[in-house]
Write a protein that binds this DNA or RNA. Structure first.
Lengths: 155, 155
DNA sequence: ATAAACCATGTACTTAGGTACAGAGTCAAG
DNA sequence: CTTGACTCTGTACCTAAGTACATGGTTTAT
């Protein structure tokens, strides 16, 4: 396959070795993957899903990621670990002023997310307390025969 | 199909209308599902996965759930909402003294879970702070053009 | 200049966590 | 005593979130 060849000097740097005259520091998809400990395919998947915008390419067609996008991918991963779905993460990432989005709307959505997160924190704290109690009881030799965390999240 | 018929009076009550002489209050799978707002199939799925033990049956083969199991299912659902996987939830539910499990082991596992949860709480708090800041900036009319939550979870 | 290592696209496969029937037996209300 | 609502087992299907090739161009280190 032949890739479209840009007929003007690319503003990308790439190659890591930071010589002078750079416009934007970028790294290859493989480097991003290694740096974040994820698969190359996952990064391309996020692009397909629209979670990150398509990065600029080299003349060869190779993706070259600017630092901003790398940070964005890292955010996605961390949020994922926290239990957010990709859909929720997309919502979080869209919380900013853009064309056709009012400030009030952003604030409203942010506040809804905050309430949601507070709820989760509360429940995690309940879970933590239940586990602490369990660990303590266990130290005290009491017979912990029932399932003691069941009460943790009762609302 | 013919189900195994128990040839002794069942100790179950069922049917909801609490007459005297009950040994264990139990409810049908449909009632459990409605009560918890989940599908019947999900409950059976949890049974197949070993997250809940197979409940006693009526002579007809119908499952009859004791309150304890209902609580357990509810716990699973809440923990799921918090972002725990079914595997993690199984681990949480197994945190108790049983045959062949030492108290020290349970304590160790509980403490590991606690550390894990604390980490999550911290990250959620970071996310919340970032969102609060975003909402505040938005109130103040500042141009929130960049993506301001990216910094939220940087470690 | 050539092999080893990368990367591109496209398509298929996987795993987790359910959901949705089909076909058949059971229960409860009129 | 029948009809509609439940439940059973088993199997197939579904969505989310990746993962794994196959095939073919690109880069780089020797």
């Amino acid at each position: 396959m032949v890739y479209i060849v840009l007929n003007f000097p690319s503003p990308l740097v790439g190659e890591g070795s930071g010589e002078g005259g750079e416009v934007m520091e970028t790294i290859s998809i493989g480097k991003v993957a290694k740096k974040l400990g994820i698969n190359i395919e996952t990064i391309r998947y996020y692009e397909r899903r629209g979670l990150i915008k398509a990065p600029p390419r080299k003349e060869s067609g190779y993706r070259q990621y600017p630092a901003e996008t790398v940070k964005r991918i890292q955010f996605i991963r961390h949020a994922k670990e926290l239990g957010f779905s990709l859909k929720e993460i997309a919502e979080l990432l869209s919380l900013r002023i853009e064309q056709g989005v009012t400030c009030g709307d952003v604030r409203k959505r942010a506040e809804a997310k905050i309430a949601d997160i507070e709820e989760r924190i509360l429940n995690l704290q309940r879970m933590k307390n239940a586990l602490s109690k369990l660990a303590k009881e266990c130290k005290g030799r009491g017979p912990v025969s029932e399932c003691p965390i069941l009460e943790a999240l009762e609302k």
